[in-house]
Write a protein that binds this DNA or RNA. Sequence first.
RNA 1: GGGGCGUUAGCUCAGUCGGUAGAGCAGUUGACUUUUAAUCAAUUGGUCGAGCGUUCGAAUCGCUCACGCCCCA
Length: 501
Amino acid sequence: MSEQDSVQEHDENQLITLRREKLAAIREQGVAFPNDFKPENNAADLEAAYGDKDKEWLAENPARVRVAGRIMLKRVMGKASFITISDSTGRLQLYVQLAALGEELYESFKGWDSGDIIGASGVMFKTNKGELSVKLDELRLLTKSLRPLPEKFHGLTDHEQRYRQRYLDLIMSDETRATFKMRSKIVAYIRNYFMQRDFMEVETPMLQVIPGGATARPFETHHNALDIDMYLRIAPELYLKRLVVGGFDRVFEINRNFRNEGLSTRHNPEFTMIEFYQAYATYHDLMDTTEELFRGLANDVYGNTTVEYQGLTFDFDKPFVRMTMKESIMHYNKDIEAADLETEYRARLVAEKLGVHLKESFGLGKIITELFDEIVEENLNDPTFITEYPAEVSPLARRSDSDPFVTDRFEFFIGGREIGNGFSELNDAEDQAERFHKQVAEKDGGDDEAMHFDEDYIHALEYGMPPTAGEGIGIDRLVMLFTDAASIRDVILFPHMKPQA
RNA sequence: GGGGCGUUAGCUCAGUCGGUAGAGCAGUUGACUUUUAAUCAAUUGGUCGAGCGUUCGAAUCGCUCACGCCCCA
């Protein structure tokens, strides 16, 4: 038995068998899957055009329309019926009468099922209860649906099934459709924002020989013809900066990164980021840009600068909080004083007291960052920039002129989660080479998230990169904020799931 | 990695003390020309996530596993 046979046999039930029989009968009668019907109207436009007209007006001004969609509800009342169809813009009620369609078609229609896709034309009218509807004089079955839809009132509630069979979730749930329409608008807004500011959109390699630009475990793959191992990119950063070296002063890329880590409500192995780079700018400029971008998104896409997220409220109208990493640690733990963060010895004592787990190899910079992750991050509800990240955890960022221990870097938090990361770029090729060497040493020491030495990138920097600032923003987490989604899986059309048994 | 909860008809869910499977929707048949989760009557439909065990007997109790959700690391 072939795999297909066994799958089908296992999967068939009475309902599907009957629908297959209905389809077989339709095949007998001619073209079962016609493709010559062209709708000219959709539910949303009709509602906008005629929703506020009354019954009399519609009777006196007959409007002919032509629509297509999927049957969601069907109410047969003897010689007349109502069906509710769904198209890409919304729902619409159609009135189907035996007298208007004839005995033969009406009898066939009574055998059609929810889920079937139909085309129809007729005139607009309003029912006695005031619902805008179409009184049909033409009705065609365009696609027979073989599988029964979920229950019409509750829809599909099982999260697992909604993620695994997103098409079904989209058929059944207006909220799901709205979420992904919002996602599309957000991406379009961001793209437009940068285009209008003279940024150029580019595409850089997703298949890389040296995975760089972030500290993360990559996915490994193999190029057969070249017989070399390759990696799916963990970030586009180093390629985008090569473009700045090349003279493209403002570039951005919106695309997927891949990180070989676990699945959770906050992590999908492939996720979407925008990274943008601007020559002759600093991280201070980017913080201003970020504030402006988010305020615009809230206003223009979300429709309000006050955003509700999972019971929290964020006001994007207020100036965003800005504080240094050390300040934030002291702010959220009053027992810690500045001197505790000056030496590795004292910082380790503090971490130990707070139960923060540290590796032997951690230097002061990593210890401070670890303290920040443990006691500060989750508290950063209001939009907040944290600045002065230690150089030890920022191998691609420019050192601060006033304190070489830290970099000209910020991360951006909303709702206790990191949304973005930006810095003045390290354009000192010699410093960059040293930092890569340190990363390689850590890699050799067993840290499989540490960076490789990218010789060609150093080469590029040696030709000279103008002073530049760059930033990455996680699109998925951003969409979560504006759609009030609890899980990253709610904002990714096809999130990764463990294979089923 | 650890803990808790869940998995029963296509979908949404019940299932008592362990006694052999239930409802609503969907489907089928019939009635019904302004319904809207249409209504009314009748009716079909089950690998109770998988496996092992306890028992005269397991959806139910125990163990293992799979997948999902939540919490913790």
